[in-house]
Design a binder for these strands. Sequence first.
DNA 1: GTCTATAAAGAGATAGAC
DNA 2: GTCTATCTCTTTATAGAC
Lengths: 202, 202
Amino acid sequence: MASSPGQQEAFPAGESTKSRLTATAAELFRTKGFAATTTRELAAALGIQKATLYHHIRRKEDLLYKLCVDSLTRMDEVAELTESEYTDPLERLSNFISSHVITALEDRDQHAVMLTELRALPPDERAEVLIMRRRYEDRVDRLILAAQRAGRIRADASPSDLRLALLNMLNWTIFWFRPEGNHTPEELGKLYSEIFLNGVVI
Amino acid sequence: MASSPGQQEAFPAGESTKSRLTATAAELFRTKGFAATTTRELAAALGIQKATLYHHIRRKEDLLYKLCVDSLTRMDEVAELTESEYTDPLERLSNFISSHVITALEDRDQHAVMLTELRALPPDERAEVLIMRRRYEDRVDRLILAAQRAGRIRADASPSDLRLALLNMLNWTIFWFRPEGNHTPEELGKLYSEIFLNGVVI
DNA sequence: GTCTATAAAGAGATAGAC
DNA sequence: GTCTATCTCTTTATAGAC
């Protein structure tokens, strides 16, 4: 449907300020950190004045909160979908690893900010995000427990200990991954899945 | 030797301000982030006035720089020592993993700050620290390459790719490790060594 | 080595016009 | 939806006495 007068343009020349806001904030927050990113820098990166920023948000923290919620919502949706596509416990686990890495790296800026800048959120919003994170971790624990009960992976370590080891390996990737680098997210997901499941020893 | 008048006390009642400064800064920088930690908070945590802080340091960044250098110096010393104690490539690698985890977690605050707050350093100092980091990474690459050449671990991935996977798993631990938690650094080092080398599949 | 007092700059956020 | 102008508070760092 074509846009009618008085409404916002259906096909603006560039993306609207609102839609660019989140991505631009995510990039700055990831590279400089939330506290070290000023509203002046953010406005400049968007090509608008500081004051205009406050037409779209109430506070700087609003941006961080939205980034965290969006990122975790997407991670959970993808994990749910991946889980539904397999039944074998080990296949579920290895495909979870790949799709976690791919999704996190496709959304690198937002995902990195969600993981590392959570402490800058006001207490209530931080608590909300922590609940979402916990829900995701519980999902991983269940995948691991299922593989243990099927006798496919070691059961002398708790699901949460194995989950921490796994997410350690996957999450730190955000600190050095570059889209223009040597490997695609797909390749990294495959490598990490192989290492976590089978190790590097021949 | 006893202290003589005019010199600093040999056995002060508490630790001197200077010696407490680094550890206190490390703790604050790790928990709040460098940018979000104010000199007021730091002074308050030390029980001194803000101005007194500037008798010991020139700038807030001085503290960050010292933390990074001290942390990396210690990591490298321990790695060197561990390497000298073993000759078998696989033993060298597994013992490196354990001692990396133990040393990093014993020095948790400083190590975490070195890993996550480097971007807050002025360019020249950041470059210096990056060189030290690179030296440490090269050491890990050599350990991995030696094990590959001995035919003990997979050689279809480059040393740097395997090193990134390994340090991913080890480094993220700083975000959730608590000294009072379920596991000692020794136990975690052993678990991560087993997983990296042999995987979790039975 | 520590203090009180203060300078100077930078930060988040708002008022009100267009 | 965006602007210019500005308020108010916080920040790092220094001056100078004890």
